[in-house]
């Protein structure tokens, strides 16, 4: 029974990480860049939101500011990659490290800033899971619809083609570098937005909240796509899959805690989930080809034998 009680919380938190997964999907799947910036930008979103709330700013402003701050972080990572030729993965790691300092200074040198749910009219909070689920559902749906429309525009199409085939894009007059910067900005904006929601939900912004965030985002993507690609391989279904993946991830997460897994092993669990999802397609391919070769060898031998007999 305790598992049932934990379920609404898992769904609410899963929706928040699902929103974060959408951001990671943009960089990882659409731009084809493994962007490590998100580990920092999710915390930036949380910090901005918490500090602005603590200073009496309205909730909507705090959330929008978080999005803009995240977009700026993505812009910096994109600039390091495109203008200075730093490999994308390293550009992300460098930006992430920069953000650690930025985040600490936003928090005023403290490692944690609490948000008081009584004095602030929060959009989501763990004390009210039904409301949190509805609000997050609206946020996620709005994000998916906006992105869906965006990727049908002239600019959106070229961002898709930039990740799909940069060669072709350049030959068709697409400014690939600009698109990568733009895509990373949008991606990190969404991630920071998820960070702002996470801070509200948990009632605090913690400097260490972002550690391994990209892994959770990727886990949501892999879990989601493993189902949604079988249903229909289009953008909206994939997005719903990613959000669903986030929810499944948090349900599993809560389940293993209840089973008695020590919390220090949770990061290990996230990493293993992602490693398995990355390894399975590879092993399948390897295994499959090996078996086929083996079989064709056997058939040859058998045919030869019969002929000789």
């Amino acid at each position: 029974m305790p598992f049932i009680y934990a379920l609404p919380g898992a769904v609410a938190e899963g929706l928040i990480w699902g929103l974060m997964g959408i951001g990671v999907y943009l960089s990882f799947k659409i731009l084809d860049i493994a962007d490590m910036t998100v580990d920092g930008s999710i915390v930036t979103g949380a910090c901005i939101c918490a500090v602005l709330l603590a200073n009496g700013f309205p909730i909507w402003l705090s959330v929008v500011a978080a999005f803009i701050a995240g977009a700026c972080a993505g812009f910096v990572a994109g600039l390091l990659h495109t203008a200075f030729g730093i490999p994308s993965i390293l550009a992300g790691i460098l930006t992430q490290l920069m953000l650690y300092s930025v985040n600490l200074s936003i928090l005023g040198g403290k490692s944690l800033v609490a948000i008081n749910p009584r004095t602030n009219n929060l959009l989501v909070h763990m004390s009210n899971n039904p409301r949190s689920i509805i609000v997050m559902g609206i946020f996620v749906a709005a994000t998916i619809i906006m992105l869906w429309l965006f990727f049908y525009t002239e600019i959106g199409l070229t961002i898709k083609s930039t990740g799909d085939n940069p060669h072709m894009s350049r030959a068709q007059g697409v400014n690939v570098k600009l698109n990568q910067v733009l895509g990373l900005a949008i991606s990190n904006g969404i991630v920071a937005l998820a960070g702002a929601m996470l801070a509200q939900y948990k009632g605090s912004a913690n400097i260490n909240d972002g550690r391994g965030a990209i892994v959770i985002g990727l886990a949501a993507i892999f879990i989601g796509l493993s189902v949604s690609l079988r249903i229909k391989p289009n953008f909206v279904v994939s997005m719903i899959g990613v959000v669903g993946g986030g929810i499944v991830y948090y349900i599993v997460y809560n389940f293993v805690i209840l089973l008695g897994l020590k919390t220090e092993f949770l990061k290990m669990l996230s990493a293993i989930i992602v490693a398995v999802f990355l390894a399975v397609p590879y092993l399948k391919k390897e295994h499959f080809t090996k078996q086929r070769n083996l079989r064709s060898n056997k058939t040859k031998i058998r045919i030869g034998g019969e002929k000789n007999a």
Binding site: Y152, T153, E154, G156, Q172, V174
Partner: peptide, 11 residues
């Protein structure tokens, strides 16, 4: 649309 400015309109 090669050579034209890409806009925020239907692609």
């Amino acid at each position: 649309r090669r050579g034209t400015k890409r806009r925020f309109v239907w692609g």
